[in-house]
Write a protein that binds this DNA or RNA. Structure first.
Length: 516
RNA sequence: GACCGGGUAGCUCAGUCGGUAGAGCAACGGACUUUUAAUCCGUAGGUCGUGGGUUCGAUCCCCACCCCGGUCACCA
């Protein structure tokens, strides 16, 4: 550990890797030259892409004077001169360093630069013999010295114009644990998160345009609800009480509809204390929205429109190859009932199948505890195992069994079903929506059924929320509600098959004692 | 949680039928004033994930554990 009495023992320790020690040695040489390795700022006139754009091909050899900054991504020393590339958030620009043109101090600094260093370069733009727009350095500034080598690969632009990186930074564990290095070195990773931000921005814009109010509801909750999942549990010392990290926003947002905030949405993290895999993260981003005076049909229209609009605005298209299939996210999406889906892909009729048949089928699908599961759970298991993996194109599966939809209104004319739909895309659930149950007595009965299931050992059954029932007694207007898994939407939009790739700092086990 | 694969230099990897390890890139020294995977010459760099065991000897074989990836289970 870091010893406060002897920090030098840490940062200059002789058992650190040689490339690190070399760079610390350069600090001393910089000090001899009177060069401050960590600047306070820099007056930039152009970002790197702006500088590229500022060079006009008007036959003149020389473009405008610019002042640019970035990381040194590459360096080719030719003795009396050198070429290198600077990189910033969204681009790169070549710099040409000619000793004759530099002051002695800047020339000395050039000798002490390393890949990864943040530098500022001032000078005119010009076009090299090979045609690349380049800044000719007249002055050079060190903005931040890199003391640890960034894992740059070597970049090659093939004759076809393809960008190929040799020996890059590819180890997934290292990339996730050191996302800062991943982002610094892999521009395509930065693009993922630019796209992510863009899509979330467009989702917000869409909802704002439709009159939705963005709200924030509690993450620390005395009772959890709104989904079937096991929660994280924590404790508030002063209140002397157990609190749960929310598994969904639902019950709070619907309280707001009761409060006459008739269109609300929230984008935020939910937390579920369950397994981690390609499509599941213990903390993930959810968009939930509720709109008064509409129902699940209204939510279908909204979902199709919102998703295709946001994706189209950010990507320019609504299609993306995902796991080897071209996924078309543009509206309209195909529709089938829950029953049709189970019949077609699972060979099961959820309304007619007997308990024994369902148990047999669930066991055949690898569920070892089928003997202990109630009918509705078996059906749900079979839906997940047999239907979802087949639904690659966005598919609206509607009219769910009422037993697994405790917060949804019964379907008009068919009380065994709920007015609920899910959108399955890329083989996993993207959206869940329903006509919100607004009958307080019915809701009480549904909570009671959940309590029963809980008593029977179902850890995911929802606890009874008396305050929520009180709110319903004040009157929840007819309401449509929808939840969208934002991370999964980003996965589909970027074509990346792992939720970790679209999460800046994905959940990983603590890696204690693994320094260096 | 189960099974499979992996963990070797800063990065990407190879390798040792058991005799304490190599390459490319990065680094360091040198040459080169329009290069772009620059090139050329040279040098250095490793507790082979951790802990045990077997053995004269283990990075390699065995056991346990840790971490990552994949598949399954779990996850409306």
């Amino acid at each position: 550990m870091r010893d406060g009495l002897c920090p030098a023992c840490w940062y200059a320790s002789t058992d650190r890797p040689k490339p690190v020690r070399d760079r610390y040695a350069k600090l001393a040489r910089l000090e001899d030259l009177g060069i401050e390795p960590y600047a306070y700022g820099f007056d930039r006139t152009h970002t790197l892409p702006e500088a590229l754009g500022a060079f006009e091909d008007d036959g003149e050899d020389e473009g405008p004077q610019v002042s640019v900054a970035g990381r040194l991504l590459s360096y080719r020393d030719l003795g009396g001169s050198a070429f290198g590339h600077l990189g910033d958030r969204s681009g790169r620009l070549q710099a040409y360093f000619k000793r004759d043109l530099l002051a002695e101090a800047d020339s000395d600094l050039l000798d002490l630069l390393d890949l990864g260093d943040w530098v500022g370069v001032m000078g005119p733009l010009f076009r090299t013999r090979t045609g690349e727009v380049t800044v000719r350095a007249e002055r050079l500034a060190l903005l931040a010295k890199t003391l640890r080598p960034l894992p740059f690969g070597k970049e090659e632009i093939t004759e076809e114009g393809e960008r190929v990186v040799h020996s890059g930074f590819a180890n997934p564990e290292a990339r996730y644990r050191q996302r800062y290095a991943d982002l610094a070195v892999n521009p395509e990773v930065r693009e993922i998160f630019e796209a992510r931000a863009g899509i979330i921005r467009e989702l917000r814009r869409f909802l704002e345009d439709r009159g939705f109010l963005e709200v924030e509801t509690p993450i620390l909750q005395p009772l959890y609800g709104g989904a079937f999942a096991r929660p994280f549990t924590t404790y508030h010392n002063e209140l002397d009480s157990t609190l749960y990290l929310r598994i969904a926003d639902e019950l709070y947002l619907k309280r707001l509809i009761v409060g006459s905030l008739d269109r609300v949405y929230e984008i935020g993290k939910n937390f579920r204390n369950e397994g981690i895999d390609r499509t599941h993260s213990p903390e993930f981003t959810m968009l939930e929205l509720y709109q008064a005076l509409t129902d699940y049909e209204g939510m279908i229209e909204l979902a199709e429109s919102m998703v295709s609009t946001a994706i189209e605005k950010v990507l320019g298209v609504t299609e993306r190859e995902y796991e080897g299939t071209l996924i078309r996210l543009g509206a309209p999406w195909q529709r089938m009932t829950y029953r049709e889906a189970l019949l077609e892909y699972g060979g099961i009729d959820p309304l007619e199948a007997g308990l024994e048949e369902l148990r047999r089928e669930a066991e055949a699908s690898g569920r070892s505890d089928a003997e202990d599961l109630p009918r509705e759970k078996l059906i749900d298991v079979l839906f997940s195992a047999r239907v979802e993996p087949h639904l690659l194109q966005p598919t609206i599966v509607y009219d769910f069994p009422i037993e697994i939809s405790p917060l949804a209104k019964p379907k008009r004319g068919e009380p065994r079903l709920a007015e609920r739909f899910e959108v399955i895309a890329g083989g996993s659930e993207l959206i869940n929506a329903f006509s919100e149950l607004n009958d307080p007595m019915d809701q009480w009965d549904r909570f009671a059924a959940q309590a029963h299931a809980r008593a029977a050992g179902d850890l995911e059954a929802q606890p009874l929320d008396e305050d929520y029932l009180r709110a319903l007694e004040y009157g929840l207007p007819p309401t449509g509600g929808l939840g969208l898994g934002v991370d999964r939407l980003i996965m589909l939009a970027t074509g990346l098959g792992s939720i970790r790739e679209v999460t800046l700092f994905p959940s990983l086990r603590a890696d204690e004692g693994a320094e260096e």
